[in-house]
């Protein structure tokens, strides 16, 4: 059987199952909720996608989800989400020119250096699986705790970011070259764990409203949000690896940025009780 057919059969079985199980439990027998949830993430210490920063500016994320009440107390959900956030390079990478290798001080021997000016933008897309536990209410209504896993893919948009490489060309002169980094070269993927708390309401037996707070932690990079991505190793680096190191630094910074953005979100969703 081809993959396409398998997917069709799976969708068919899933739909039949939903309809057959419509009578229980859920809200008046309805168990499936399609929803759109914008997320608000404070950009207090980092710029948003427009480069704005402060206590009154936010990053916005869009989440589309499908939640299913498996029993009275538990709902499972699958969601797709995306957002963009600003990313200001916080490092400058130097590379010593071979001509200055033996100088006791830098003096007139300028190192080769990379500069980054302006703002980059981090585009994040992710899929997540959730488990909502309704301790007091009956799924999908009421207060609930959230647990989930999230796979995020982040790529950088450098269109507004200027890269330059200034290096010594002798006779006291320097040359500055401009070049580009492609976003695919600096993309990064991360697995995070989500936890949170929310409350659902249902209006007119059809529309669901959700308010909640969520936090995503990246266990392997647990402290990445607090660390500087600068590394002395790069400062003293030789050879032709500077550009690839720059990519690594961008990736590190992307993870740090995601960790900061995902650390605390306020979610406000609207949905539709489908079946």
């Amino acid at each position: 059987m081809k993959a396409k057919e398998i997917v069709l059969v799976a969708i068919f079985i899933f739909t039949i199952n939903l309809v057959a199980a419509q009578q229980a439990p859920g809200y008046l027998g309805k168990r499936l909720v399609l929803s759109y949830t914008p997320k608000f993430m404070l950009s207090a210490f980092n710029p948003n996608k427009n480069g704005e920063q402060g206590f009154t500016t936010f990053n916005y994320a869009h989440r589309f989800s499908l939640d299913f009440a498996a029993n009275r107390k538990i709902s499972y959900g699958v969601a797709f989400e995306m957002y963009s956030t600003g990313m200001e390079p916080e490092f400058t990478l130097y590379k010593h020119h071979p001509a200055s290798d033996h100088s006791s001080s830098w003096g007139s021997d300028y190192p080769e250096s990379y500069y980054y000016e302006g703002y980059g933008r981090l585009n994040v897309k992710g899929v997540s699986l959730y488990r909502y536990k309704y301790k007091k209410g009956i799924a999908p209504l009421g207060k609930h705790s959230i647990l989930g896993v999230k796979l995020l893919y982040a790529s950088m948009d450098f269109s507004d970011l200027e890269f330059s490489n200034t290096y010594y060309i002798g006779s006291g002169s320097h040359q500055k070259d401009y070049y580009n980094l492609s976003s695919s070269e600096t993309s990064v993927m991360q697995l995070g764990f989500v936890w949170g708390y929310g409350v659902n309401r249902i209006v007119a037996d059809k529309v669901t409203l959700r308010l909640g707070v969520e936090s995503t932690l990246f266990p392997l990079k647990l402290f990445s949000m607090f660390q500087s991505v600068e590394d002395d190793d790069y400062y003293l680096n030789y050879g032709e690896t500077s550009l690839s190191k720059a990519k690594e630094l961008f990736q590190k910074q992307a993870i740090k940025r995601m960790a900061q953005v995902e650390a605390f979100n306020i979610t406000l969703g609207i949905g539709f009780l489908a079946y």
Binding site: P25, Y27, I138, L141
Partner: peptide, 12 residues
């Protein structure tokens, strides 16, 4: 919605 949820759950 809370009332409906609880009452329906009982009959369910």
């Amino acid at each position: 919605d809370l009332m409906k949820s609880y009452v329906y759950d009982s009959y369910n």
